[in-house]
Design a protein around this nucleic acid. Structure first.
Ligand SMILES: [Mn+2]
Ligand SMILES: [Mn+2]
Ligand SMILES: [Mn+2]
Ligand SMILES: [Mn+2]
Lengths: 234, 234
DNA sequence: CACAAGGTTTAGGGAAGCCTAAACTTTTCT
DNA sequence: AGAAAAGTTTAGGCTTCCCTAAACCTTGTG
């Protein structure tokens, strides 16, 4: 009765973080986002997630099929993308305009994204030349919510001999980012899989002429574009 | 028993706004801040202020004498000044680095001040050359909490013939800021009181060679430094 | 098919912050 | 001084967002 007719502009910080998490989960897994997955991503008890799910559904931002998962409504997707745009523009601005190291922009953006106005975010984007991706290679949605996700594949999924360009790395863990930077695994870097040990063993890579060995768990957080995929268009 | 031994770094946004308000009230009024004044400044019911006062006192940030008012403890003053520094650095950065109009920096800073880290604020300050005052002329506290408040007097308090330099204007009301800018009443502007109508009447000023008339209510929000005061040192 | 395991929701509770109404204290006015 | 006015606090309630424990579905396995 009172559903779906709410201010909509004034989402709480926590609500915005839930929508972002649900958006991400919907993207990677094909289907709706599971309560447990949301809980894990946000480091919150599953029961608390159920509570927030109810509120978001009442506001018409998600649809909830009990015991089955949640999906964003068009309105919820728009809200998620607005927050994601803010997050990524802020990350980019901090790195480009203020010299922030790339392993620390994420935590700062995680809070600022809920406080910065659309106008501020637009001014930031303009000041640094409307970048297409954030410092970790993630695409920045446009003001209208449109995003062009490049076709990418996890570095972990490549076989020996494959050559690829790093498109994007997971940005949640600062220590991991520092380590990847040490290895030269940055967006735009060319990597070649020299060898792949069996039984989920480490990958030997050639990066910038140097040989590097990384475990599959780490390689799962590195997304790459392969020449074939680029040409075929995924 | 559990008083005064708390994280202290993690103050809520509302708590920081209360501390700022109490700091301001302590400065202008000489004595402790009254519940009603805090309520009016924050646009919150007086009863709600009593509740927050209890919490802030439990955290050792203020001292409360019931029915008499509150005062900041040294710890509370430090927390207030840290938030004020953030607010004013952010205002300055928005105006200088991002071309924000001076009538809109305040509202944006009012939210960002609770989300920006000290490191971000320091980087902003460095990027614009460590300004001494914000766009409205208010002094920016240093990292260690030290502030040098210039001796100022309300323009409203000047008599006919007085000459002064605008030091600072109230920044809470955007429309008022736009009007003052229209009149040329900006920090640094030289104003001369040409005439003063009796019975709380309007002041006629000369600003930039132009004659301007403003009411005493508006003049109360313009703080000026007079030559004598500057020389005598207040 | 039954049932254990895993995932999800409900029940009950707490802290923060806000509200209105009522009680209470202090100040001011007659 | 006594009473009205002004200011403050307390009482009782509400929403949001979090928690743990218990009930409840769904699924996969024996
Ligand atoms: Mn990020
Ligand atoms: Mn966030
Ligand atoms: Mn301000
Ligand atoms: Mn604020």
């Amino acid at each position: 009765m009172s559903a779906a007719r709410h201010p909509a502009d004034s989402l709480s910080g926590p609500a915005e973080d839930y929508l972002k998490a649900i958006y991400d989960l919907e993207q990677t897994r094909g289907a709706g986002a599971a309560t447990n997955d949301i809980a894990q991503r946000l480091d919150i008890a599953a029961a608390s997630v159920s509570g927030m799910i109810r509120r978001l559904a009442e506001h018409g931002l998600i649809e909830h099929e009990p015991y089955r998962g949640v999906r964003l409504t068009p309105q919820g997707r728009m809200a998620a993308l607005r927050t994601i745009r803010r997050h990524r523009v802020i990350e980019s601005y901090l790195a480009t305009a203020l010299g922030y190291p790339w392993d620390r922009v994420h935590d700062e953006a995680e809070l600022l994204e809920h406080a910065a106005s659309d106008e501020l975010v637009d001014r930031m984007a303009a000041a640094i030349g409307e970048p297409a991706t954030d410092p970790h290679g993630a695409p920045i949605p446009a003001r209208d919510g449109s995003v062009t996700e490049r076709p990418v594949i996890a570095l972990e999924a490549l076989g020996a001999g494959a050559v690829a360009v790093v498109a994007r790395v997971g940005d949640e863990d600062a220590a991991r980012l520092r380590y990847l930077a040490e290895l030269g695994i940055l967006p735009g870097a060319r990597v070649e899989v020299v060898n792949r040990a069996p039984f989920d063993g480490p990958l030997t890579l050639r990066v910038d002429g140097d040989e590097r060995t990384i475990g599959p768990a780490l390689a799962a957080h590195v997304l790459v574009a392969t020449p074939e995929r680029s040409l075929l268009g995924g």
